[in-house]
């Protein structure tokens, strides 16, 4: 397990008796970029949300490094501070400014000093192009701006993994590109990225690995060139031709 940051074993998840994830097994390599594609309702977001336990699993294990985080004696807050997440609906804190959204985690969770946290936040806000908006209330920002702040907030946690849950799906078309550009810009070897997305060009360009899910199962799994050009899988090809 040395090189794997996330290991998922025999994971199943059902909502009110409906099985939405069926016996998933998956390893995520440290420092890799993995995108998960698939039709709506295929279980990709649910799988992503199991990785930081925003969804409880029905059975199976989710390992962060060597820790099974589905067990009740795990300090979930500590694990989550290392697995940041960027949401479709941004989920920025409405009562805080842009800067405070980025510093609350470092100050209250990582116990950094205010000065250190501010410095770090400014560094990442600059990286996502939001430094001029540092004192704005987040409710006054556009969707694209909000998502860029959300990416900075995730980076400020200095995480091992960042989960992206359809980060561009609720944006106006002209804002999609600015967020995708920021995402390309922040990809680094130090962090593992797991991205659920419908942006196929983006998935092809940035991924080390693409996973195709359908109906609660991992149907195909491989390098982007294989998934987008060489796979013979009918469900996958049907899906790719449709989008």
């Amino acid at each position: 397990m040395d090189n794997n940051i996330i290991t998922i074993t025999d994971l199943s998840k059902s909502f009110d008796g409906t099985l939405v994830l069926k016996d998933i097994n998956l390893n995520i390599r440290k420092g890799s970029v993995t995108t998960i594609i698939g039709p709506s309702g295929s279980g990709k977001s649910t799988l992503l949300r199991c990785i930081n336990q925003l969804e409880e699993v029905s059975s199976g294990g989710v390992f962060f490094q060597d820790t099974n985080i589905t067990e009740s004696n795990v300090n979930l807050s500590k694990i989550r501070s290392k697995i940041a997440m960027v949401f479709q609906s941004f989920n920025l804190f409405n009562n805080l400014s842009v800067l405070e959204n980025c510093t609350i985690g470092p100050i209250k969770v990582l116990n950094l000093s205010k000065e250190q946290s501010n410095e770090r936040a400014q560094q990442f806000l600059e990286k996502v192009g939001m430094l001029p908006f540092i004192n704005r209330k987040v409710t006054t920002l556009s969707g694209g701006q909000k998502q860029r702040v959300a990416i900075a907030r995730a980076l400020c946690m200095d995480p091992e993994v960042i989960l992206f849950d359809e980060p561009t799906s609720s944006l106006d078309p002209e804002m999609v590109q600015e967020v995708l550009d920021v995402m390309r810009n922040v990809i680094s070897e130090d962090i593992s990225f797991i991205v659920v997305t419908h942006e196929m060009d983006f998935a092809f360009d940035v991924s080390d690995r693409v996973i195709f899910m359908d109906n609660g199962e991992i149907v195909e799994d491989g390098e982007p060139s294989y998934i987008f050009h060489n796979s013979k899988n009918q469900r996958l090809n049907k899906f790719i031709n449709r989008v």
């Binding site: 989550r80 997440m85 949401f87 989920n91 920025l92 804190f93 209250k108 969770v109 995730a154």
Partner: peptide
Amino acid sequence: DKGQIEGAKSIGLPKSKMYRYIIFP
């Protein structure tokens, strides 16, 4: 909005701090 709670959970804020700094205000 439930997103406020999920946002707080996603950065590892424990419940007490989530209520203190995000929800109650």
